[in-house]
Write a protein that binds this DNA or RNA. Structure first.
Length: 500
RNA sequence: CGGGGCGUAGCGCAGCCCGGUAGCGCGCCUGUUUUGGGAGCAGGAUGUCGGAGGUUCAAAUCCUCUCGCCCCGACCA
C-alpha cells in the first residue's frame, strides 16, 4: 500500500549492545500527517479498505469506539433519551423536501439506482444523515402535544462522498450517533440543543481528557437546514482546530418540510420544533491527535480498552509459573475494582519487545513483574503519559488496590491538563487583521478576537488566511471591543483557526 | 479536479538510466542458546515485478495505454 513520503525515514542503526528498528513512526515535528497515519497503523487501530476513502476499523480501534459509545450512551439515557434504528436507504424524494438540506448534502451522497438486477423506480440515497427519514416517521407518530417530546438517538453508519479523506477524521463511510428530537416549543428545542452541547463538552473533557471550547457556529459554518448549530472545538497538537461534535437547533424546518404538526393545549395546530446532534468516529482521530507522542498512541485511561498490562518477566518455566501466578493474583484484586487489566504472558516475545508493543498501543500503565520484584513484594509501573525511566513508579504489591486506580486518575488528569496548557499557550488575542493574518501564517493556533463582520468578510478572511471562525464561544466576557476586520464596536468575541 | 509520491515476497525497499529471466532488511517456519527496553547463531519457505498491448532472440527494466493507492490543496463532520 505504501508510499514513503520524502521526509519519512526508517532508520536502522547499530549501537554496541543492540540492534533495533529505531523508528517505525515518523516524528510529529517532521511530518504531522504521516505521524498520524503511522500511529494508526502501528497501533493497529485501522487499515485502508479496498474502496477509496473507506477504512477498516481494527479491533484495537473499535474497542476505543466501543468505550466512547458506552460512556455517551449512558449519558444519553440518563438525560431521557432512547435508542432506535432507522434504515440506511432514503427515498430520493425525501432528500428533496428540505431545500437547504438537499443543497448541502446532494453533492456528497451515494445513490443506489439498481436492486435485484433491475433499475429502481425511485433512486435510494444512502443516508448522509437521517433527518429526512426520521421526520417522515415523526409525521406519523406525532399528533398531540402529549406525544412530545420525542428524544430518539441512533447509533449508525452514514456515507458522505468526500473529496479528500483521512483515517478517522473524514472517511467516506463513518460510524456515529445521531440524536433527533421533537419538541413543542422553540425554547424546549433550544434547551435540548444546549443540553447536548454541554453533555458533549463534559464527555470530551472527562472521558477523552480533551479540553474543548463550546460555542455557536456562524451562519456560514452551520448545518444545512439548521436554525443554528452549536459545536465543541478542540485543538490538536499541530495547533489546528478539530470540530468534535455538533448540536443543531433545526427550528421548524423539517417539521414544515414533512408536515409534522401537533395540537397544543389550546387545540391549536402547530409545527414541531426539532434538534439533531451527533459525534462520530472522528473522535478516535481527535484522541490520537490530542495526546499521542512520537513513541505511539497515548490513550486516556477512561477510554483505554486495556488500562493496565502486566508483563511477567521470566527466564524459565519455573519463573514463568511464579510471576504469572503473582500477576494473576494482582489481576484478581484489580479487576473487581473495574480496572481493565491484561496479563501478557506470551513467551514468544521478550519483555523488552512487549514494553514497546504496549507503548505503541497506548496502554496507560505497564506493570513489570519479575523475580526481583516477587522477592521484594513489589511491582514496577511505567506510565504512558511520562516516558522517562525516572518516571517509573515502584509500589508494594498490597498497595495496588489504592495506588493503581489513583495512578489511572492521575494520568487521566495529566493528559487533560497537558492538552489544556497546550491549547491555552497557543491561544492568542488579536486586535487587528494584520495580527490575525500574521498569527495564521506563522505560529498558528487559536486567535481570539472581536467580530462584527458579515458572511462576506468571513469568506474573505478564509480566502486570505485559510482560517475560519470555529465558533462564537458560549463563554463571553461581555466587554466591548473593535471588530478585528471592520473595526466596528461589538461585544462578540470569536475564535479563528485553521481546521480539519 | 489540481500538485507531489508510489505500485517488485506478509511489511519496508533495492534493481530500471546502460534489457540477459529477481535481490536485501524485517517478519514467518525449524532447531538451539536466550529473556528487566524491540535477542544471538544455524538452517528454511515465500514472487503471475499493479494490468493490457507493443518493440526484441530475450522485458521488472524500453515504448504506448490503462487501473489503483497514499500525501498535499480546493469541499466538508
Amino acid at each position: 500500500m505504501g508510499s514513503t513520503p520524502a521526509g519519512r525515514t526508517i532508520s536502522v542503526f547499530e549501537t554496541n549492545r543492540s540492534f533495533f528498528m529505531a523508528e517505525k513512526i515518523t516524528k510529529r515535528s517532521q511530518d504531522y500527517s504521516q505521524w498520524y497515519v503511522d500511529i494508526i497503523m502501528q497501533a493497529q487501530l485501522a487499515d485502508y479498505a479496498p474502496v477509496k476513502g473507506c477504512m477498516i476499523i481494527r479491533p484495537n480501534g473499535y474497542a476505543v469506539w466501543e468505550h466512547i459509545q458506552q460512556a455517551l450512551d449512558s449519558m444519553f439515557k440518563e438525560t431521557g433519551h432512547v435508542n432506535a434504528y432507522f434504515p440506511l436507504f432514503i427515498p430520493e424524494s425525501f432528500m428533496n423536501k428540505e431545500k437547504e438540506h438537499v443543497e448541502g448534502f446532494s453533492p456528497e451522497c451515494a445513490v443506489v439506482t439498481h436492486g435485484g438486477g433491475k433499475k429502481l423506480e425511485e433512486n435510494l440515497y444512502i443516508r448522509p444523515t437521517s433527518e429526512t427519514i426520521i421526520w417522515s416517521m415523526y409525521q406519523k407518530w406525532i399528533q398531540s402535544y402529549r406525544d412530545l417530546p420525542i428524544l430518539i438517538n441512533q447509533w449508525a453508519n452514514v456515507v458522505r462522498w468526500e473529496m479528500r479523506t483521512r483515517l478517522f477524521l473524514r472517511t467516506t463511510e463513518f460510524l456515529w450517533q445521531e440524536g433527533h428530537t421533537a419538541h413543542a416549543t422553540y425554547d424546549e428545542a433550544e434547551a435540548e440543543a444546549v443540553l447536548i452541547l454541554n453533555l458533549y463538552k463534559t464527555f470530551a473533557e472527562e472521558y477523552m481528557a480533551l479540553p474543548v471550547i463550546h460555542g455557536k457556529k456562524t451562519d456560514s459554518e452551520k448545518f444545512a437546514g439548521a436554525l443554528h448549530t452549536y459545536c465543541i472545538e478542540a485543538m490538536m497538537q499541530d495547533k489546528k482546530a478539530l470540530q468534535a461534535g455538533t448540536s443543531h437547533n433545526l427550528g421548524q424546518n423539517f417539521a414544515k418540510a414533512f408536515d409534522v404538526t401537533f395540537q397544543d393545549e389550546k387545540t391549536q395546530l402547530q409545527h414541531v420544533w426539532a434538534t439533531s446532534w451527533g459525534v462520530s468516529t472522528r473522535l478516535v482521530g481527535a484522541l490520537i491527535m490530542a495526546h499521542s507522542d512520537d513513541n505511539g498512541l497515548v490513550l486516556p485511561p477512561k477510554l483505554a480498552p486495556t488500562q493496565v498490562v502486566i508483563i511477567p518477566i521470566f527466564k524459565d518455566d519455573e519463573e514463568k509459573a511464579k510471576t504469572v501466578e503473582a500477576a494473576q493474583k494482582i489481576k484478581s484484586i484489580l479487576k473487581p475494582l473495574g480496572v481493565r487489566i491484561h496479563i501478557d504472558d506470551r513467551d514468544q516475545y521478550r519483555p523488552g519487545w512487549k514494553f514497546n508493543e504496549w507503548e505503541v498501543k497506548g496502554v496507560p500503565i505497564r506493570m513489570e513483574l519479575g523475580p526481583k520484584d516477587l522477592a521484594a513484594g513489589q511491582v514496577i509501573c511505567a506510565r504512558r503519559d511520562k516516558t522517562e525511566k525516572s518516571d517509573k513508579v515502584t509500589m508494594k504489591t498490597d498497595e495496588v488496590t489504592t495506588k493503581i486506580p489513583a495512578l489511572l486518575d492521575e494520568i487521566q488528569k495529566n493528559l487533560f491538563d497537558r492538552a489544556k496548557k497546550f491549547r491555552d499557550d497557543n491561544t492568542f488575542f488579536v486586535s487587528d487583521y494584520p495580527q490575525l493574518k500574521k498569527l495564521m501564517e506563522e505560529d498558528g493556533g487559536f486567535a481570539k478576537c472581536f467580530w462584527a463582520g458579515s458572511k462576506e468578510d468571513e469568506a474573505k478572511i478564509k480566502e486570505e488566511t485559510k482560517a475560519t471562525i470555529r465558533c462564537i464561544p458560549m463563554d463571553q466576557t461581555g466587554e466591548k471591543g473593535k471588530c478585528v476586520l471592520t473595526g466596528k464596536e461589538t461585544d462578540v468575541q470569536v475564535i479563528f483557526s485553521k481546521s480539519y
